[in-house]
Nucleic acid binder design. Structure first.
Lengths: 310, 310
DNA sequence: CTTGGTATG
DNA sequence: CATAGCAAG
């Protein structure tokens, strides 16, 4: 369970969120709870009491711009979380720029950028070099925006994706649905060889329980029936949503809080848009799925998958 | 003379420049000296001892973006300076936006925007409504960029201008010289009726004394011989540079410090680009010309003209 | 509201 | 380095 430190909150709330503290490190959280406290706790929402030990951890985060994320202390989170693999989406990464992640010598970094600068982009950092890295899905139409990359490991394929947003007035709904179909084929092809872990910002809240105000968003991007069905169909091919599998009735568990309503975090008006989707045959390896709603630095929050491979 | 307050400077230097102080007002200065101290002093560089009383004050400032300037507390400066007329350049003002200057009920505001959004733009705020306001100089070629406006008062015409920058590699030197010729005709036409006060960011350092490193900038925008001669010729039509008239040998008096070299203010590596040019017949009304190098909030600093009209 | 890239100074 | 506006989310 999270424990709040007893400090003068009024003073702290006036400080800039990421101001250096006395130790010279940036907490990347609301300052009321230390980063260590957050990482140490397994899951605030623990219902299932899965007592299996984990020995492999994957984290995923839509960081909403690599440069801003680093400035806000993102690396402190990464070092505290210390996952075996870290998947990033929306890096908006421009390959012409050197960045500080290369100095984290315990991670091997692989990046995929959009043709268009400052847009989309994904990355995978892992402690052990993957067997193979694949950029895009060999589709001329859908590989321009740097939205999917795959890293092969011994026991699974890891697919890191930033699914296209259907956009204001759903102008890109059709594009997004076609994109998902292509990705679906890609996943299924891989799954025939080795089980897959599909993670990232999937830009869909699957069911009513996955967003605060379902009724207001029946026709909004990320909650149209088309997007939800598309996701259901992919799952029906032999995968499962690891968070919902572990916590079937857990409401108020979100991974995204819009910046456009500044109160969205405070009122917990969020959406669950980020997932670890796994091949059914990996069920035996699943230990836990944790959401880190207290971590700041992006409009999304990190999600963490705890696995056991013996 | 400016007096420094004895406060712990180390602590203060770490603060953001425009953080609210305990009184809830924003100082808009380095925090070492209060705004009031700065305004109260007439001129740090006082050489001529002109003991005439002043009864009319005009301030001018290239504010480098109205929105940012307001956010940084520009209105605090304006209220402390309390000029009869305030001329602004580079407002980058978009008329579609309401702004807080309208709430200063003791000033009548008149604005001229560029056709192109977020570019150039000038404004005149005055305590008494001008007899007449003229926008632009009735020249099709040169009136698109919102660089000149005139306000007529009882004793003078006030011309507020933001002279075009000759640009990197002097790409716009020719445009700028033609522009100046058109303005020259405009000034002379007005001067036949009533004396003029021509102020603003004139984007020229007239002589070697008017910038820190003349030798390095013999071919830079604002110090080419063409721009300097152009300014000399306008003056020769019957005007004078009020600061240089009062302080003929004063060096190190600048009104612009580039943001590109963050040390430029600290090392006083500046340029004098902002002027009050007056018709010769107004010499008898001139009391003082003050530069406010300690005021922050823009890459330019305010200049203030003290006049006497009996 | 926030991101990054842009043009301009 | 710092401004505004842009497109996107």
């Amino acid at each position: 369970m999270l424990k709040k430190k007893l400090i003068d909150t009024k003073k702290i709330e006036k400080k800039p969120k990421f101001e250096e503290n006395s130790t010279g490190t940036t907490p990347l959280v609301d300052n009321l709870i230390s980063l260590k406290d957050i990482i140490d706790c397994k899951n605030e929402f623990k219902e299932s009491s899965n007592e299996k030990e984990w020995n492999f951890k994957i984290a995923s985060w839509n960081i909403n711009g690599l440069r801003a994320w680093i400035k806000k202390g993102g690396i402190n989170y990464l070092e505290a979380e210390d996952p075996d693999i870290f998947c990033l989406q929306e890096t908006k990464y421009d390959h012409s720029k050197i960045h500080e992640l290369s100095t984290l010598s315990n991670y091997r970094c692989h990046w995929l950028a959009s043709v268009r600068k400052g847009y989309a982009g994904v990355g995978i950092m892992s402690k052990t070099e993957p067997i193979r890295v694949e950029y895009g899905i060999s589709d001329q139409e859908f590989d321009k925006e740097g939205r999917v990359m795959m890293a092969e490991y011994e026991k699974f394929y890891l697919i890191n994706s930033y699914v296209p947003n259907a956009g204001a007035k759903l102008v890109r709904l059709n594009y997004r649905l076609k994109w998902s179909e292509v990705l679906r084929d890609y996943l299924n092809k891989l799954d025939q060889v080795k089980p897959v872990i599909w993670t990232g910002d999937l830009n869909v809240a699957h069911n009513r329980i996955d967003l605060k105000y379902p009724n207001s968003h029946l026709h909004s991007a990320c909650f149209t029936i088309e997007e939800r069905n598309s996701f259901s169909e992919i799952l029906s091919d032999g995968y499962f949503d690891s968070f919902r599998y572990l916590y079937p009735s857990r409401s108020d568990a979100y991974t995204f809080y819009t910046h456009r309503k500044p109160t969205s975090r405070h009122t917990n008006s969020g959406w669950r848009l980020d997932y670890f989707v796994m091949s059914n045959k990996l069920k035996k390896n699943l230990v836990d799925h944790v959401i880190r709603p207290l971590i700041t630095g992006s409009d999304h929050v990190p999600i963490v998958l705890y696995l056991n491979f013996e």
